[in-house]
Nucleic acid binder design. Sequence first.
DNA 1: CTGAAAGCGCTTACAG
DNA 2: CTGAAAGCGCTTACAG
Lengths: 365, 365
Amino acid sequence: MLLKDLAEMAGVSLSTVSRALHGDARISEATRKRIQEIADREHFVLSKSASALASRKSFRITALFVDHFNTWFTSTSLEGLYSVISQSDYDLFPLALHTPEELDTFFRLLSRNNNTDGIIISSIHLSDSHTEQLAASHIPVVGLDSYGTQGYDAAVVLNNDESMLMAARRIKLLGHTAIGFVHYPQPGLFHDYSYSERIPQFERICRAQGYPERSFHHFASSNGKADREGVESILRQWTATTPRPSVLFVETDDFAITLMSALREQGLRIPEDVSVVGFDDNPVSKLIGLATFRQNALGNARYAAQTMLSLLKADQPEGSLPERADLAGVKAAESDAQKPMFSRDFTSFIARRTLGPAPKNAARH
Amino acid sequence: MLLKDLAEMAGVSLSTVSRALHGDARISEATRKRIQEIADREHFVLSKSASALASRKSFRITALFVDHFNTWFTSTSLEGLYSVISQSDYDLFPLALHTPEELDTFFRLLSRNNNTDGIIISSIHLSDSHTEQLAASHIPVVGLDSYGTQGYDAAVVLNNDESMLMAARRIKLLGHTAIGFVHYPQPGLFHDYSYSERIPQFERICRAQGYPERSFHHFASSNGKADREGVESILRQWTATTPRPSVLFVETDDFAITLMSALREQGLRIPEDVSVVGFDDNPVSKLIGLATFRQNALGNARYAAQTMLSLLKADQPEGSLPERADLAGVKAAESDAQKPMFSRDFTSFIARRTLGPAPKNAARH
DNA sequence: CTGAAAGCGCTTACAG
DNA sequence: CTGAAAGCGCTTACAG
């Protein structure tokens, strides 16, 4: 069943059918309805390839993620993008890249070949050369959960400043004087995850709260990963530190969860012996007693998708992108702009600093 | 930069460039290399729409999921499919459907319009009418984590029989005489999730182990969902049952995790007061003390994707599908065929049945 | 081993 | 309000 068959059945031309199916205002309501009914009855579907080729669009939106889909944060972002884009004429194509080289290749091949109409990039800082390549491609680019806006036509920017301020004050009130920061800098992989900005930012804010330099201790995963080995290297560093930090801030919930599991296996109680704070508000955090900063992964993704659809719509009439300057809007998702966000149990999962002797089991290892 | 520009630069015809880029054996090695070098240097990329239209393929594989991407099981399946398909010429196009109506529409519109070359369907039983529609579409269909094979050209079938047998014996040894089964039958939504087969299957196996009929108690979520309200309705039913089941088998880890959280909020200890067993081996299960049957979500998905690529390859020469009978292979992913699979902590997370009085807090509500 | 030409199934100026 | 025709950028028999 092709367009020409439909045209024959309806007794009109190809052009008329095509226009009717797209709701072209020039087609009379009666004709449109008649054609639509035949199309429905025959279960007619346009060929995407043919439509795309003829219209010089791809009807695809590419969603670029780092590493894997099966983390809470990535899969929730994907869900958010999908829930919006599936309602439009566009198809969502998710892409997962694992190394900076793959990222480079992706940007290098962004051509005018029209294989994607828009790109949504999650949690990545764009380098100068990526920025140039994107600009040259004339494809709209929306940042999702990015820290800055460089290279993006629009970006949903993470901003935990207010939450961090509240957290820093709270920690101080509870008497914590030694603070541990836990990183996993993925050597050789992406250095420019947006979450790598979280810790430095929080440290700045703590400093502004009057914490002296020696309060801060940085622990980095020895292999750069959030796995068993990485976690154990963190534990070793933490145990060897004097005074031992009574609260640990971890770049992501995923890593914090693995870390907590290891801490408990060592016989440590959380939060009595050490408090752990993550970022993301993975739903599991509540179940296992992890305090966490909330990131509205779903809402941010939906907002980014809507922004992309707007850009695509704005793009239509002129056939070329509006001036880059007009688009460059740094927007926080509405829901995020309002208020500091913590997991519901943020406070209860952080203990008043213990002043007694170190717990028995903590030293072994 | 189009194919014709490349042809000009290389001093050959369009046909030659196209063939060279596709590794056609008729093109001399020297010519092929020369063309490839120019293509690389110019960052040339074929237009997918044009290639698809001309070759009458779509270069898309559709992955059909139920509900949401941000569950552990779905996102892990997606990851597995992606890791295989991204290495091929095909693009992975994920689809999430929420109601049987959407599913019907999807099947009805599967046409010869070539918008997808293959369909991978996760965790769904196909009805007779879907089976017919699929057969009529002549599109290869692979089942992922299905319980049966109806309607599929090939299927990775879930088979927990041996694990269930071991679990049933273990439960018996530990002295559990009252067993609770927890469902969430999603009224009005899909009745044919493959996981809805888990409980009946396990009940059969327990019966074969000599459990009398009165040992079994079924608890269904009042609203059919795995949310707070659903969980609380389960708790009410469980509390009202005499003798109160000392072990609860839950259809999925996701629901089991929510249930455990509610149980603990009621002051119940797990597994001392009640043991909880789920299905899936969500990595979190270990952290929170949930015993669970392992499903190799990642491996199964990879296997399904590989199977799809094979079908697509087999499909190529003749231009039509091989006889359906030849394809109909019921295959368990290799890794799953071997051995019963439990979470590492399966046994330690199930307590010997407590014979003392019911815990104090359990009755309130 | 290579090329000229038809055609994939649509969209969209252009003309009326 | 509708139609005839060109064209989107490739692939692939067919011919040599």
